[in-house]
Design a protein around this nucleic acid. Structure first.
Lengths: 207, 207
DNA sequence: CGTCTCCTTGATTGAAATCAACTTAGGTGG
DNA sequence: CCACCTAAGTTGATTTCAATCAAGGAGACG
């Protein structure tokens, strides 16, 4: 296991570099929450399983993002690799010790947590949409916003992942993509590569 | 305006005591996020408005709870008094200055933020439920969990508030309450006072 | 070439939204 | 005190949209 110090972390903050294969579990709900993770490459999903076995994906985490924050001693969500990915794991105790001595770092840590909070609230807004069309449109806009190219987006996740993120079925996701294509708002270059032809109108649907 | 130091805050942390009438806005989405609030009495709702005018309630905040955390300089949500309520407002800058000097306090602040995060994730889980029955059951269980008496709960909010919290309509909320009463899981002593007759089965519906 | 997994498409069903009317509870003022 | 008024809640009829059930297609990989 390699040990690294990332450029944007304070001197002395080191983490372990970890690799995960597609589908691998980073941590499970109920596991001891000993580390916080930063995505180096690839995409990770945070999810929970309801007692009927259904999965709800709370969020996707991509390059540079920090995830795995939890209030208690245990993770309330699971985290899984969407594709092959590389992460850095930072020991929570070590971070907290650092936060105690480095005033700036404690605020940075708070800031990361608040970014997670903002994402969670944004996800609630997505789920609050009444229509499948609104959910999918909002999802695509969200993907565009965290993509280098605003116009062509490459989805790292399957239709099932999207469905579980939006609390829809894969059939509805598929049909809604098709509908958007019919309306000339998007073009599906492949099933995973989407050309957003009219981001403004797409934002308008996000209602 | 009265100035107070609460028993559980570090020496020197003072806040302003504020009173709000039912329905009053504590802050609006887009306002400068200058303060963080703690509920002394009453209930506050955090909400956002979608571009079709619909309201989504992200959470209800009751006695002792801290709300108003935001990653950026502006609030992303609005906060409104559900009934008459009393809050303490803490200046964010002052808290951050304190966090920089007091190591313990910076972790306390982080902990409050992580509790907000946990609540937000829990709300996503609620919204992720496929059926109105599952949402209402989960909502009642949640209310029971933050109520003194686990069996009789007094709802501070209207049916419309509940509907906007669960992304349902008031009619569906009303009908589902009635259904639960028919199934002998609850009894509506008044429209706002609910007797949970079988919390275990209610938890089971939360699926 | 066969066998996965992922995705799409079609037919039907079902649950919640909508539209509409009515009831109840609270508050105010005559 | 009661009559009125309003906001909140309930109930019913109908429609609509997404879930479900079912089958087939496309791409990846050995």
């Amino acid at each position: 296991m390699q040990s690294v110090r990332t450029t944007d972390a304070p001197k002395g903050i080191v983490g372990a570099v970890l690799h995960y294969a597609s589908g691998a579990e980073v941590f499970g709900a109920g596991d001891a929450a000993e580390s916080i993770f930063k995505v180096v490459s690839g995409v990770v999903r945070s999810c929970s399983y309801q007692n009927d076995g259904r999965r709800l994906i709370h969020g996707f985490h991509a390059g540079g993002e920090v995830f795995g924050f939890d209030a208690g001693a245990r993770h309330s969500l699971s985290a899984e690799a969407v594709g092959d990915c590389t992460l850095i794991a930072y020991r929570r105790r070590r971070l907290e010790k650092f936060a105690a001595t480095d005033e700036g770092f404690s605020l940075r840590l708070l800031s990361y947590a608040l970014q997670s909070l903002a994402k969670a609230e944004s996800h609630s807004r997505l789920l609050g949409h009444r229509s499948a069309l609104g959910k999918i449109a909002a999802f695509l806009v969200e993907r565009a916003d965290c993509s280098a190219n605003r116009s062509i987006i490459d989805l790292a996740m399957t239709r099932q992942d999207i469905a579980d993120y939006l609390a829809l079925t894969i059939e509805t996701v598929s049909r809604t993509f098709h509908l958007l294509e019919t309306e000339n708002l998007i073009a599906l270059q492949t099933s995973r590569r989407v050309h957003l032809k009219d981001l403004a109108r797409l934002r308008g649907l996000d209602s």
